[in-house]
Structure formats: C-alpha cells, structure tokens
C-alpha cells in the first residue's frame, strides 16, 4: 500500500513535468501545424539559463528570470526564423526546427561544456517533507507538483475564460476569419510560440536540479514529449495532461515493479529450459519489466495510433 502511494506521487511528479513540456508543444502544433523538434531544446535552455542565473542571484531569481528569457528567445526565433520559412511549406519548417535543436545543443556545449552542471535545489526546499514507510518525499518535489498544477489551472483559465483565450481558440480553427475581423494573427502565433517555449523553460528550470542538467537532457526527453501529445490528441490541453500523467505513472510503476517475464511464461505452462543459451526464448526468460520500462509509452502510442488515431482527446478531423 505504501509503495502504491509513493509510486502515485513519483509518477505525478514526472507526469506533470512532461505536461509542462507537452502543453506548449501541443498548443504550437494545433495553431501553426508544425511539430517543433526543438521544443525540448528550449527545456534545456531553461535549465542552463536558470543555472547560470542561480550562480549569481540564487535559485528563485533563476525561476523567475529564465522562463521569460527562453520565451523571448522562442518568440524571436518564430518571428525571424520560422515565419520566413513558413511560406515554403511544412517540410522546410520541420527541417528548420530539426536543425535548431542541433544548433542549440552545440551552442550549449560550446558555452557550458560537456560536463554535468551542479544545478541544485534551493536550500530551503532540500529536506524530506514527509515519509511514507521508510521512503522520504522531498519538499522540492511537492513544490514542483504544486507549481505545475498552478500553471495548468492558469493556462486553462486563460484559454477558456478570457478574451485572449477566445481569440487564440478562434485563431486555432479559423485563422483567416479571425484575421478578417481585424486581429493580428501572426502576432498571436508569435505569442503562443513564446509562451509555449517559456513553459518548456519552466519545466527545465524545475527539472534541472532533480533530473540533471547536461547537454543530453533535451535528447533524453525530446521523443517522449511527442509520444505524449500523440497519445493525448494533437492540440488538446486536457489530452496532454491526461497522457502525461498516464505516462508518468506507467513508467514509474514499471521501473519499481519486479515483474519477471519468466513468471508469465511459466503461467502459460512452459518450464524454464535447462540451458538458457540454447533456448530461442532466452531473452524473454531473463527479461524483467524495469528493463523495458522506458519503451512502454511507445508501445502505448502505437496502440493508440491503431485504435484511436486522433488520440484520447483529439478531434476526429484533426
């Protein structure tokens, strides 16, 4: 029972982190129709910027300053890069963001080097807030969970309850009409891109201390973010949230289980072979669930694509 509670909290932590990344990505996709391959790179930039700022001004200044910096950078890239490429169609846009991801990684390596950065949680959150059994839950994780929840509620409020949200939603489906009504749609695009990348920046600032700040951090999370928005349904904020949480809980549960595939084989009435090297099922006999945990979300994505191609919360025609 303890283990279930701990897994739920750990999964929530990881899931909400994924959500902050996928929320921006899914908004950008639904609005501009581009899959932004460089999205996770903005997450990495967030962590590095915050690390650099925290050296001089402390963690909290990093948390406040780094995401807007990343957002402004994202908006500038949209304005002077993506918008120019846009007129040539979707493929050049894809190639552009793909190249951008490489460029950002190389720039990060050039400035900060290949080594792991010692980006730390703030001192006042470096303690065990409470214990479940012998496991301690770090205050920082709880702080992170609440921050991301607040961001989700804030986003939802802006998108559904304010005038700006109304225009954004309208621009999502009928950009031409909205433009004809006198709204500056390119400006809205730029704003959404900026906010989306800033969200990725927040995720980086918060995740940097607990998941590590190193040049490979964007690559490690990059693909899983795409999986999240495909499962959730492209363009759906709720979908992104639910898919992120599902993936968070799924990978956490898999990693913490001790399930052996041998048990499954025995259940089907098979007996372990005397000499494993001779058996054609050798790999299955020695495999455990944690070993394949990280690929479970991809299997889930394939199932979703087969059974419900528009995702959990996606609109059918999208």
């Amino acid at each position: 029972m303890d283990l279930v509670a701990i897994n739920l909290i750990d999964g929530l932590f990881y899931g909400l982190l994924l959500f902050m990344l996928s929320a921006g990505l899914t908004l950008i996709f639904s609005m501009m129709g581009i899959l932004n391959f460089a999205h996770a790179s903005f997450y990495m930039l967030g962590a590095y910027f915050a690390y650099q700022i925290s050296l001089y001004l402390g963690f909290w200044a990093g948390l406040l300053i780094a995401p807007p910096l990343v957002g402004v950078l994202g908006a500038l890239i949209e304005r002077y890069g993506l918008r120019r490429v846009h007129q040539f169609g979707h493929v050049p846009e894809l190639v552009f963001t793909f190249g951008l991801a490489w460029l950002i990684e190389e720039v990060v390596k050039f400035i900060w080097g290949n080594n792991m950065m010692a980006y730390q949680e703030p001192e006042i959150l470096k303690f065990a807030l409470f214990h479940i059994g012998s496991n301690s839950i770090q205050a920082y994780k709880v702080f992170m969970i609440f921050t991301s929840m607040a961001i989700f509620i804030g986003l939802l409020f802006i998108l559904t309850r304010t005038r700006i949200g109304l225009i954004i939603q309208a621009a999502l489906s009928y950009p031409k009409t909205v433009e004809a009504l006198g709204h500056n749609v390119p400006l809205i695009f730029m704003g959404v891109f900026g906010v989306g990348t800033a969200l990725a920046g927040v995720a980086g600032v918060l995740a940097g201390p607990s998941l590590g700040t190193f040049p490979g951090m964007a690559v490690v999370l990059g693909s899983i973010v795409f999986v999240t928005i495909v499962i959730g349904g492209l363009g759906s904020l709720w979908g992104a949230l639910i898919a992120s949480l599902l993936i968070g809980w799924m990978t956490t549960a898999a990693a913490s289980s001790s399930f052996q595939f041998a048990t499954l084989l025995e259940f089907f009435g098979m007996t372990p072979p005397a000499d494993l090297d001779e058996s054609y099922l050798r790999d299955l006999w020695t495999l455990s669930l944690p070993q394949i945990g990280p690929i479970l979300p991809y299997i889930f994505m394939i199932l979703i694509l087969v059974l419900r191609p528009y995702g959990l919360f996606g609109k059918r025609d999208a």
Binding site: L3, I6, N7, D10, F13, Y14, G133, S134, N135, S210, L211, G216, V220, L221, I224, T251, T252, A253, A255, S256, S258, S288, P290, Q291, G293, P294
Partner: peptide
C-alpha cells in the same frame, strides 16, 4: 539486481525507492 537501459531512464526516483524498500 537491476539492469536499466543505458541513457534512457529519465527519472530514477523509482529505483531510489526500490533501494530503500
């Protein structure tokens, strides 16, 4: 006795839990 994929695990928390448990 855990073997995990190299460079693929994003969040090691569950492994920490296992060690404690």
């Amino acid at each position: 006795n855990e073997l995990h994929p190299i460079g693929k695990v994003k969040d090691f928390t569950p492994y920490g839990r296992k060690i404690v448990a």
